[in-house]
Amino acid sequence: MVGMSSDRLAGYEKDFLLSLYERMVLIREFEERVKFLFLEGAMPGTIHQCQGQEATAVGVCAALNADDWITSPFRGHGHALAKGLTVQELLDELFGARAGCCKGKGGSMHVGNLDKGMVPGIAIVAGAIPLAAGMALAFKMQKRAQVVACFFGDGAVAEGAFHEAINMAALWKLPAIFVCENNLYGASTHISKVMKNTRVSDRATAYGCRGETVDGNDVLAVYEATRHAAADCRGANGPVLLELLTYRRTGHSRRDPCGYQPKDEQESWFSRDPLDRFAAALRQSGAVASTELDQVKARTEAQINESVEKAKRAPPPPVADLLTDIFS
């Protein structure tokens, strides 16, 4: 395993470190459970999962204030859990139940909760980037100290919306953090097949804002980079283009067997798994006992088990709601 030095943990509160770990475990366990619910046929539709990318969601959201916002694409379960949505409201949504975070009408690709600062997922590739720029413009015009972190994948970088939104955001110095989770693949296409310069953060220079590439499998590195970016944004020095290098441990969707990831590439990334690395660093530092980490896992599993049982029995939206929440 490519470890993280335990020295890096110095200066952080133990509770904070454990909360980061617990949130990442929660995302991993949630995604694994959802995978089996799908395989069992208990859950309808397809799903886009984020096993292996937990540190990006958790590191970014931990660095934001409660009243800051995030936007997310179709791979949003991790972002939602990191922003504070509950396992129950997510599972209810995935099961199409009325109690879901989008009243059971959004499903896996559109999870979000406006009360918790997460715009329901926008499944169109790059679709949320102009939206985030618009939100940041509102914050600026209303003289609020809020920022928006906009998650998207490397595939979105090839969309015109990416260019247009970051250009305007830079021009107007908007408080937006554009978070590119670069997992090397746009669906099944390797990044090297669609861009000559594969360092996404380099593009910031062209727009006249700051760009930074960060180890996206190192939750503390992501946290620090996001804090820095948020401070820039609040100081009217935004936007910031953050590129987080990470890797998906699963197919693009449940129907994708992921045969295009070469074995050696997989092995090299799996040895830098964000959870394994952070757990090892926590153990090494001596600040956290192994039993505490085990307790986190057990607690998380119990929480998910309970929520799954409830979600399976949760009623769907009533027919009377058929024409509400509809826009056209």
Partner: peptide
């Protein structure tokens, strides 16, 4: 064990 919904089309 049932066949999962693995066909994209």
């Amino acid at each position: 064990m049932k066949m999962p919904d693995l066909a994209a089309t």
